[in-house]
Design a protein around this nucleic acid. Structure first.
Lengths: 289, 289
DNA sequence: TCCCGATTGTAATTTTTATTACAGGATTGC
DNA sequence: GCAATCCTGTAATAAAAATTACAATCGGGA
């Protein structure tokens, strides 16, 4: 089923009758395009009659010609869309936006230099149910904190996104202790408030896990785990894309570290959702904080 | 005639009607395989009716659907049998995390298929100071709305992130009219609330601009601009990374469409910031809503 | 050489598919 | 706010395609 059809044909070529072999060769000579036209075209190209083509595809195990074509299209789709067969058609899109290529480069570079142990430790920390996860971010990166929180909240309990007015932060700080984890998203310029919060949390015994733009964030000194990402793009702004890539990897990591729990929680949530009138449903993942 | 059909389509995308664009995008997203099946399959994938597909290929200059398919097959044949097609798949990853390579691939694919005109129009819309920009997102994508808002808010006035309790949305809806733009981040499953909000806003005359995971979001029907992104990754979750890449491109685009204004506003904000005690600074870009 | 089974093409049949006519609906311009 | 125009989908129609039945043909073994 998964094996390319070409191999199958090559291998079984001797099972075919003489005219069927002609069909096979015609197909192989112009694979897979030859099979994507009509039966008549195929037949003509192979120098045989239509029924022979039909018998050929039937012998290959297909229930009909269109079934055979579906298979060809599927293979073609996979081939064209996955293994960067792009370089062949690179001539067309050689004018890729420099901003886009920089973003891609950033992500690749980021993960090239990302210490695997650091990432795994980070994930384990986040997956520990006995701990409370607090997420906080800066002016722009707060969105990442929220994004991460909205996922983590689904696969595990005790996830808190620290957002809104600064006054609230202090309230949160009160409850933070050695069983807490504070995940900080912080890029330059490192905001004083975030630094203060992190330092205070660290002082109360919380584990700090930092996702940042370099090793220079002052929070790095007190963090148990640091994941640095590239942020430079040809723009007045920094790009948080690589940070988000890290966030998604964390989310997936935590989800898959305990698939059973994750799945069960996702299911339960699903049911809860269905029990409610969809329109009057609680808005998007519950209240912040 | 010798030029790849893809280019032709990309370039002439604006000549097409709304549903024809859907067809074009469906084709580009799965080029050329999408065009090699039956009209009905194509229509279904694009979410339009068969005659629309026929009109689409007719507008491209073909005398009929099979003529169109002949062309696709011809191109495909040339492409697959060219010597260039063999030297693929070396440039990137290698032993990288499959999740990471898929994310990178998603971004590349997303921008490969992103219609330039659509993007430019989107940016112009966002840069228009006379309009109010409202941003809204779903359970997970709300973070992107926030992220975009926090940047746009700096380079231009009248940026509103519609967040929080659903009740607030309605309040926002009251003020929305023909001078408003509603930017919607929406991936499956398309939340009913978001759809309702968008429809209501559209009914009041607002221009809808959509960033989504495919052309299937129901909001696509009423949107003036649609930017689709790839979201599939080897994870139980969808990846919003490509959506964010789009968001960053939008942000940069708007910023650079009027560099003088942007710079001045950034400067002014800087000064405001400095005038305050950094610690008691207003928290992160002011209140939402 | 003749016979029998397998193979192949012709032509009829049936199913699928493209195409077209038309009417409801949306949109644009006045 | 109205009319005219342009889109768009439904449903009927025409065209083309796949499929099947069957007869002609071929090839090897008595």
């Amino acid at each position: 089923m998964k094996r390319p059809l070409v191999e199958d044909i090559r291998e079984r070529i001797d099972e075919f009758t003489a005219t069927e072999k002609k069909a096979a060769h015609a197909l192989l000579a112009r694979y897979p395009v030859q099979g994507l036209g009509t039966v008549a075209q195929f037949a003509e190209a192979a120098g045989v009659s239509s029924p022979t083509i039909l018998r050929f595809v039937s012998r290959l195990g297909f229930g009909g010609f269109s079934e055979f074509q579906d298979r060809l299209r599927l293979e073609l789709d996979n081939q064209l869309n996955s293994p960067l067969a792009r370089s062949a058609s690179m001539d067309t899109d050689g004018d890729a936006d420099p901003h886009v290529s920089k973003m891609v480069e950033n992500i690749q570079e980021t993960f090239l230099h990302l210490p695997k142990g650091e990432l795994d430790g980070f994930i384990k920390l986040l997956a520990d149910e006995k701990r409370t996860i607090n997420l906080i971010g800066g002016r722009f990166t707060d969105a990442l904190a929220r994004y991460t929180a909205s996922h983590l909240r689904i696969v595990r309990p005790n996830v808190v996104h620290i957002a809104g007015q600064q006054g609230n932060w202090l309230d949160q700080l009160l409850g933070i202790g050695p069983r807490d984890v504070v995940v900080v998203f912080d890029i330059r310029r490192y905001q004083a408030e975030i630094i203060h919060f992190s330092e205070a949390a660290a002082k109360k015994g919380a584990a700090i896990a930092l996702v940042t733009d370099s090793w220079m964030s002052p929070i790095g000194r007190i963090a148990a785990y640091v994941l640095p990402a590239r942020v430079a793009v040809p723009s007045p702004w920094d790009s948080s894309l690589a940070l988000m890539a890290i966030a998604e990897l964390l989310i997936t990591g935590v989800t898959q570290l305990n698939p059973a729990r994750s799945q069960q929680r996702m299911l339960e949530l699903e049911n809860l959702r269905d029990d409610h009138d969809p329109a009057s449903d609680s808005p998007r993942g519950g209240p912040d904080i």
